[in-house]
Design a protein around this nucleic acid. Structure first.
Lengths: 139, 139
DNA sequence: CACTTTACTTGCATTTTGCAAGTGATATAA
DNA sequence: TTATATCACTTGCAAAATGCAAGTAAAGTG
């Protein structure tokens, strides 16, 4: 993947794609935001079976990009707890639009109820998820 | 890239990413929708300098996925004219959200005027672009 | 009829991905 | 205290995707 410092162009879409334009990055964000994944193990447990080296790489990039933050668990010093920053939460509209598009045109397992909610009250849906993540200083 | 027939999971986001989760696919769509690119040459002319083999591969995937359609030019039989289908136009919200996100958090060359329009009248902005593409039977 | 243009394709080097098997630090059980 | 398990990675290597430069066929131009 392209490092942050060398950009193909200054087009916002191109820059966005250099940050999350791959098969895994937004899926990690999905687990973080929708499935409340917090640990490395949680992310490894998703259906898509991400390889541990790729997961480690993506988490580190997301962290560098300021999209996720992490701390060691106070209960177990082995565990690292990942959480979205505001910049990460602000990717929710992108996730929602991508999900709605795929659900409209492809055969997916998206629950009809959630899709309905997303479609009919996009803002409310996004706000409900945001509220699950308490504001922090470094976010 | 993953072929359409073998899916990692039935999650809509995962499926969406199998279709456009790479560094180039959405940029091609950007050129098609925002810059009115119609020919192979037009797409090659973008700032990001896509390699011709990758461009050919992505156009063929987009075509297979039903996101773009193409016809030979009536004026010049060498030229193939690409255009978005409805399914392609329906990716506009994803593009817009990605652009707004990048413009908010990264240094980009996005014109302030267009961003303002996108932010303040997302629906109108999208509709204005849609109307530039007349409806067709195969779209 | 030579020359150019268009939309690709081909061959090959480089980079990224994916898989399986570690590793070190910490926790837990005996 | 020691053995074992768990957690968050790392490492090595094969396979796939990407990027570059050069080529090609079909069609248009002077």
């Amino acid at each position: 993947m392209t490092p942050d410092c060398v950009r193909r162009s200054s087009c916002p879409l191109s820059i966005a794609l250099e940050i999350f334009g791959d098969k895994w990055t937004l899926l990690i964000l999905r687990d973080l935001l929708f499935k409340r994944a917090t640990t490395f193990k949680d992310f490894q447990a998703s259906d898509e079976q991400i390889a541990s080296n790729i997961l480690a790489d993506r988490l580190s990039r997301l962290s560098t990009a300021g999209i996720v933050a992490s701390d060691r668990s106070p209960d177990d010093a082995r565990v690292i707890l990942y959480r979205p920053t505001t910049k990460g939460l602000d990717l929710l509209p992108v996730l929602v639009e991508a999900i709605l598009w795929a659900a409209r045109y492809e055969k997916t397992a998206a629950p009809a109820k959630i899709l309905k909610r997303m479609r009919e009250d996009r803002e409310g849906f996004i706000q409900a998820i945001r509220q699950q993540f308490p504001p922090r200083s470094e976010s």
